[in-house]
Write a protein that binds this DNA or RNA. Structure first.
Lengths: 197, 197
DNA sequence: TTTCATTATATGATTTTACATATACAATAA
DNA sequence: TTATTGTATATGTAAAATCATATAATGAAA
């Protein structure tokens, strides 16, 4: 599975604790292409340590919990390199909102517009977060190999969110148009319910 | 979970067997926002039948296996309506290729270009498949409520794939540029390995 | 002729993901 | 003062997803 390899890759950048992997790497940086649960990260780290792909050193701290800093081993590097050469399957799409929209013909228009607005806000927030990530732009002279790919994948996250927002706007427009069309149609149907407000 | 509600929704269109749900609905139509395994569909249908949300009638066939045609019940319709009113969480992104690209600085450029080309072909194929789905376009007068939302979600699938293809092209261009830049740089690094061909 | 694809349902086993909760101390906020 | 947030690791459990395989008939292809 790719979580293992995402972690292996991250540990080539710098040794990290499970907590840092979660809060700095996954939640802030690469969540637009791989999301991971905290519990899953810790358990995967244990499994990887058993495999011999990572090792940890305990850092004793006084005022806060001890840190288990993981670093990648030679075997881990080898596994990462092997995996990096393999062809990857297509992404799995599972978007519950799109399921909802697919069947939104069964909802009144006001509810649909409300759903759209909420999703819009959530995606907008994501986009803002991605935009603030400190990765040099494509035309930056500091863009070395690694950073080039970080920027490219970040661009993907940003573009995806922009596309999503555009689509939500398109949906809203289409729904409003449909409301108009129905308002002029005397054989009014229940779809208009509440939506005149 | 949304698989249940995707199935409930699909059964409001027409009664179907598990096989039809898989081959016609999921694999052909809505896989760009909800993918489902065959085994999972059958098991979910069983669970839904126990819940009382669907019922099945057995259609005896002579030359092929009998069909278990599921239809939605009143309780199922109620559950679907309830769910359609709830707010949905953001989509979960898990794209192993993007993980690979994030760490592609550790690969030689020829391998990266090869990976990109393969993904491109796969996404191109998906796009072609989506384009051929028989859903009336947005400006079609036959576009009723249901079909409007089918078209909107399909537009999302198409747009997403187009965006992905554009991004892959951008990646390819960036990698080729990086190759150029490195070729002129005498402090050649292993990244160029094999990529001069 | 044997293998493969299609139609159709189903189970076993495993892996992956998700959700909840526990511990523990410090600092900050209500 | 009490509650919450941040740092840090971990387990229990359940749900969901994946992969493999079984059955069984027909028809087509190698």
């Amino acid at each position: 599975m790719s979580l293992t390899h995402a972690i292996l890759g991250l540990l080539t950048i710098t040794p990290m604790t499970g907590y840092e992997l979660k809060t700095q790497a996954f939640d802030n940086t690469i969540k637009y292409f791989w999301q991971a649960d905290q519990a899953q990260i810790y358990r995967t780290l244990s499994a990887m340590a058993e495999q011999g792909w990572v090792e940890s050193t305990l850092e004793i701290q006084e005022d806060r919990p001890n840190r288990k800093v993981y670093h990648i081993t030679e075997a881990g590097l080898e596994e990462l390199r092997r995996w990096l050469h393999t062809e990857q399957p297509l992404p799995v799409h599972r978007d519950p909102f799109l399921v909802q929209m697919f069947f939104a013909g069964q909802l009144d228009s006001a509810t649909v517009l409300n759903h759209i607005a909420r999703q819009r806000a959530a995606h907008q927030a994501l986009l803002e977060q991605y935009k603030q990530l400190p990765v040099p732009p494509l035309n930056d002279p500091d863009l070395d190999h690694s950073r080039l790919f970080w920027r490219l994948t970040l661009e993907m996250g940003i573009t995806t969110e922009k596309t999503y927002l555009d689509w939500l706007d398109q949906c809203e427009a289409a729904v409003r148009e449909m409301i108009e069309a129905n308002a002029q149609n005397p054989s009014a149907n229940p779809w208009l319910k509440d939506s005149k407000a």
